[in-house]
């Protein structure tokens, strides 16, 4: 992999992954986008801002290597560097875990900005995994962000919450945001039982940066603690495309219909009648 950091001017981008609603795939998205960027040779720091309910370490498979965490950094119990876990599988990828035994009030937005500013010098991308909700945890996560990835699923509740988040981010002056639609099922869209990505984009009016199909490989990858970005799976390819688009490349959107085999279509006809 080409190493061109030294010649490049250091401009880091801080991306918050948020959704409002819980369980739509923020942590999975953070893990895959972060890992994907590292695979592209970028220096990446993932920060789990969900204090009290940390998950990103587990999804990344780094849960056994935690010594210090975000709250330790903020409270001055350790240096920033000590809390960073290096992912041995991908050079340039680090994780700052969150504390499990504390709550959201342990960190303030101002402290968060300070930690991020410190990390900006060493990383190309800082990915913040935001907790669900719009309370202090959310405020902490967005405080230092330059850009937002809004994760939603094609469901009424998730879209409604995403719309609220868009409003709050706009009110904060965070204009650069992109939409990821997760758990898309093309078979359901085709028979009119799920909103299409075009429908969701039309409702939310946020530029689309990726559509991730509902893929059981995501569950398998989470079981194993290894993000599936870049693997030859529908979700792995979709996340790889998201990463490319974040890097500014023009990538056409995948057509997941191809993954539905002819046989499924034939049996599908019989199921319906």
């Amino acid at each position: 992999m080409e190493n061109n950091f030294s010649t490049e001017k250091k401009v880091s981008e801080v991306i918050v992954v948020t959704s409002g609603k819980g369980g739509v795939g923020k942590t999975t998205t953070s893990a895959n986008v972060g890992t994907g960027l590292a695979k592209e040779g970028k220096r990446v720091c993932l920060i789990d801002t969900d204090i009290g309910l940390r998950n990103l370490d587990v999804v990344m498979g780094l849960e056994n290597r935690i010594v210090y965490n975000l709250v330790d950094v903020v409270e001055g119990n350790c240096r920033v560097k000590q809390a960073l876990i290096r992912d041995k599988r991908h050079p340039g990828l680090y994780l700052m875990p969150s504390a499990q035994t504390r709550d959201k009030t342990a960190v303030s937005p101002g402290q968060m900005v300070k930690v991020i500013d410190h990390l900006r010098e060493q990383f190309d991308y800082i990915i913040l995994d935001c907790p669900a909700g719009i309370e202090q945890g959310f405020q902490n996560a967005i405080a230092g962000a330059d850009r937002a990835l809004i994760v939603t699923t094609p469901e009424v509740s998730a879209i409604r919450d995403a719309d609220r988040i868009v409003g709050l981010l706009e009110a904060r002056g965070l204009e650069k945001m992109d939409l990821i639609i997760n758990r898309m099922r093309m078979d359901m869209v085709k028979r009119g039982d799920m909103m299409s990505s075009a429908d969701v984009v039309d409702i939310l009016a946020v530029p689309l940066i990726g559509v991730v199909p509902d893929d059981e490989n995501v569950v398998i990858a989470t079981n194993q603690g290894e993000p599936l970005v870049g693997t030859d799976t529908p979700a792995g390819l979709a996340y790889a495309n998201v990463v490319d688009r974040i890097l500014g490349k023009e990538v056409p959107f995948l057509n997941f219909e191809k993954t539905i085999s002819f046989w499924t279509k034939v049996t599908g006809i019989f199921h319906r009648v």
Partner: peptide, 19 residues
Amino acid sequence: KKSCQVAKDRLKILLISDR
């Protein structure tokens, strides 16, 4: 009525009052 259309209609009304 396709459930996708129902969802869109409900969301449109919901979001107007939310916004």
